[in-house]
Every structure is written in structure tokens, then in C-alpha cells.
């Protein structure tokens, strides 16, 4: 396989270079790749494996171990519902259930038209605003179930 010609690979290359192409650069490289491409597809994993001289199985193993890495593309819009303790105590479960029902997808899934991904997180570190959801990278705190739906509807329209 020839090295992908996509210019974005340069970003990943830069991270690997900074860390001297050491095997320990794997996780940092995956982070850069995900940041650049939005998710980790097979060519990206293969590219990293080759450049760091690691077996693809190892790269895949690491990428699947950490929740933060996504192997599937996200939707056009993203909602991350925090399911940490503080948010849970304040009713995050109801919010998630309502959204799952409203959009017909489970947590971690994307609607068929690719418009919306519903994700969950383990505490986003803004517990004093619980319950919280992050709609397209914007944190929305002290949510009610209605607020949550409204926020998404606004983003989708």
C-alpha cells in the first residue's frame, strides 16, 4: 500500500516525527488522526501501523481499548450526553432515553441519514452544571428533558 496522498496525513506524520517515530507515539498519533479525520478508518490505522512499524493488530487493539477513539464516522451533528455520577443523579438517564426514543437510535449510534450521532460520556468535568449535554461541542448545562430535545432540534434545523 502506498502512503496515502491525502494532505491531512501530514498532520499525523508531524506528530509521529515529533515523537521520533517511537512505538510509544502510537496513542498520540491516533489522537492526531482522529482530530484530523474525525474518526479512525482503516487506511488511517494502516498508515500509522506502517510508519511506526507496529503490527496492525496492535494498532487496532489500542484503538479499540480506549473509549475516546471512534472507528466509525460521526454524524453531521453530535450530541454527547454526560452519564457521569453527578449527571446521573440529576436525571441524565431520562434525557438519554428520551433522545433515544425521539431519534430512534441508541447511544453510540448515528441516524440513517447521517444527520445526528448520539453519544455518551463519563463525566465531562462540569459536574456543577449537571445534567449536561454537549451539542456540537457546545456544553449545555442544567438541562431538562425538554431543553435537550429543543437544543438538538435547533441544531438540526
Amino acid at each position: 500500500m502506498s502512503a496515502p496522498t491525502d494532505a491531512r496525513y501530514k498532520m499525523v506524520e508531524r506528530t509521529m516525527k515529533k515523537l521520533g517515530y517511537k512505538r510509544s507515539a502510537l496513542i498520540e498519533s491516533l489522537h492526531t488522526a482522529q482530530e484530523t479525520f474525525g474518526y479512525l478508518d482503516k487506511p488511517a490505522l494502516k498508515f500509522i501501523a506502517k510508519r511506526l512499524r507496529l503490527p496492525l493488530a496492535k494498532v487496532y487493539g489500542v484503538a479499540t481499548f480506549y473509549h475516546y477513539f471512534r472507528l466509525k464516522p460521526k454524524g453531521e451533528h453530535n450530541v454527547v450526553v454526560c452519564m457521569g455520577t453527578a449527571c446521573y443523579i440529576k436525571g441524565a438517564k431520562e434525557i438519554l432515553h428520551r433522545l433515544e426514543k425521539r431519534y430512534g437510535i441508541g447511544a453510540g449510534e448515528t441516524t440513517e441519514d447521517g444527520k445526528l450521532s448520539l453519544l455518551t460520556a463519563r463525566c465531562v468535568g462540569s459536574c456543577s452544571l449537571a445534567p449536561i449535554a454537549i451539542c456540537d461541542n457546545k456544553p449545555k448545562g442544567k438541562l431538562t428533558v425538554e431543553d435537550a430535545v429543543e437544543n438538538i432540534e435547533k441544531a438540526l434545523s
Binding site: T85, A86, I89, K90, C127, S128, L129, A130
Partner: peptide, 12 residues
């Protein structure tokens, strides 16, 4: 401490 949950002054 991070005070959270059903408490008036949530915070640090």
C-alpha cells in the same frame, strides 16, 4: 472537593 448532586452550592 467537588461538591455535586443534590446540593445548593455545587462547585469546588
Amino acid at each position: 472537593f467537588a461538591l455535586t448532586g443534590h446540593i445548593e452550592n455545587t462547585g469546588l
